[in-house]
Nucleic acid binder design. Sequence first.
DNA 1: CAAACTGTATTATATGTATAATACAGTTGT
DNA 2: ACAACTGTATTATACATATAATACAGTTTG
Lengths: 128, 128
Amino acid sequence: MISFDSFVVTDKSPIYMQILRYIQRGIAAGQICDGDELPSRRVLSALLGINPNTVQKAYRLLEERGLIESHTGAKSLMCLDSETVEVIRAELLESDAKAVVGTMKQLGISKTQALALIERYWGEETAE
Amino acid sequence: MISFDSFVVTDKSPIYMQILRYIQRGIAAGQICDGDELPSRRVLSALLGINPNTVQKAYRLLEERGLIESHTGAKSLMCLDSETVEVIRAELLESDAKAVVGTMKQLGISKTQALALIERYWGEETAE
DNA sequence: CAAACTGTATTATATGTATAATACAGTTGT
DNA sequence: ACAACTGTATTATACATATAATACAGTTTG
C-alpha cells in the first residue's frame, strides 16, 4: 500500500496536481513500484482531509497517463515498467534543475555562490 | 522605467503572483531600485497581453507590502530602502534553496549528484 | 448470500483567477 | 484650459478548483 505519510499541502498549486507530483516523485525515487496498491479515493481523501472528488481527479490523470489501472469495484494498482520509471525520473530531475538554475540566475547569483548555497541548505546530509 | 522584457507567463500560478515575484526578483538582483518608475496599469497590461485588473491586483499587493507608492493620477514609483532589499533577497534565496534541496532529496539524489546536476544545467556560464 | 468495501458519475455551491466594459477623479504636458 | 495620460472602482461574465451530497455498479470479504 502506497504511503502518503510525507504528503503535505503547503503548495498553492491545485491539490490534485500535488498528488500527481507526489506519486511521480515516489516513482522516480523507487518508493512506488509496479503493482503497488493505491489507497481508495475515499480513504485517501479522509487521510488528507480533502474531498473524494479531488483525489479522483488526481487518480484520473494518473490513469490517463497510464501510470495506474482502475476498474469499477476493484482496487487501483500502479502500472509501471522500467522505461516509464526512467522517463519520469529524468523529467523531474530536468525540471527541478532548470527551475533552480533559472531562478538563481535571475537573482544574479554566480554558479559558485549557487552551489555553496545549496550545499549549505542540504543540511546534515553526512555520507555521499 | 522598469522593464518587463524578460517577463514570461509560463508558470501555472496566478499571473498577478508572477508579476509580484518578477518585481521582487528584480529588486533582489539590483535591477529595480528605489524611485524607479513602474509602467502604468494600462500600458503593462497591453504589453503582457493581459487584463488591466490583473496588473492592478499585482500592484495593489506590492503597495500593501510597502514596495511601491501609488496616488490617483500620478505615476507609480518603487519605494525601497537598503534593508528591505536585503530582506527580500534573503527570502528569495532561502525559499529557492530550500525548494531545490527538498525536491532533490525526495528524488533520492545525493548532494554530490545534485551539485553536479545543477552545474551541468547552469550551461555556458563561463566566468565565476 | 450479504455487508462492506471498491470505482464512477452527477448535480449543486462556493471561491479564486482572469477578462471585459465602463466610469470617475486626479496629474501631466502642450 | 485642454487633451491625454495617470490611479481607482464597479459590475458582469467565464473558467478552474474544491467541496458536498448522493447514487449506482462491480469487487471483495466474512
